[in-house]
């Protein structure tokens, strides 16, 4: 057991957990932030993607202790002041989801991708989604949503 402290969605948190606690369980079970999903046991599906110090990572593939001291952003921290993040808005408008299970990971991956890649093509978006699986196979509209969001954010920043 150890006390693990970090910042989650802008708020400092500190809890005593077992050393084997994966970050995703720390978020879901210790903090009750169940927006981050667990879809596989093999680090492949990406439903658990969150940002640690600004980079998209699979929260099922690091221990909470590894994120001690870090700044963590989950899907719950994306909307600001009741306003959806542009990527969330684009997913809603483009129907970028079917059952919705993969959506939190898709959106967190998309936010990271748009930050890193200023010139996203549909082909590039598909290759950047390598680590996120949608078992409804709803990729077409997910790609459209990310393309739309990237355009909105570029215009918003200009």
């Amino acid at each position: 057991m150890a006390v693990v402290s970090m910042t989650v969605n802008g708020k400092p948190v500190s809890h005593e957990v077992e050393d084997r606690t994966l970050l995703v369980y720390f978020l879901r079970e210790t903090l009750g932030l169940t927006g981050t999903h667990i879809g596989c046991d093999t680090s492949q599906c990406g439903a658990c993607v969150v940002h640690v110090n600004g980079r998209a990572v699979k929260s099922c593939t690091l221990f909470a202790g590894q994120a001690a001291g870090a700044d963590v952003l989950t899907i719950e921290g994306l909307a600001k002041d009741g306003q959806l993040h542009p990527v969330q808005e684009a997913f809603r408008e483009n129907h970028g989801l079917q059952c919705g299970f993969c959506t939190p990971g898709m959106i967190m991956t998309a936010v990271d991708m748009i930050r890193r890649e200023p010139d996203l093509t549909r082909e590039k978006i598909r290759s950047e989604l390598e680590g996120n699986i949608c078992r409804c196979t709803g990729y077409h509209n997910i790609v459209s949503a990310i393309e739309d969001a990237a355009g909105r954010m570029a215009r918003g920043a200009a």
Binding site: A56, V57, K58, T61, D112, G131
Partner: peptide, 9 residues
């Protein structure tokens, strides 16, 4: 290697 999230770690 892997995918973007894996490459970040």
């Amino acid at each position: 290697i892997g995918d973007p999230a894996v490459r970040h770690m």
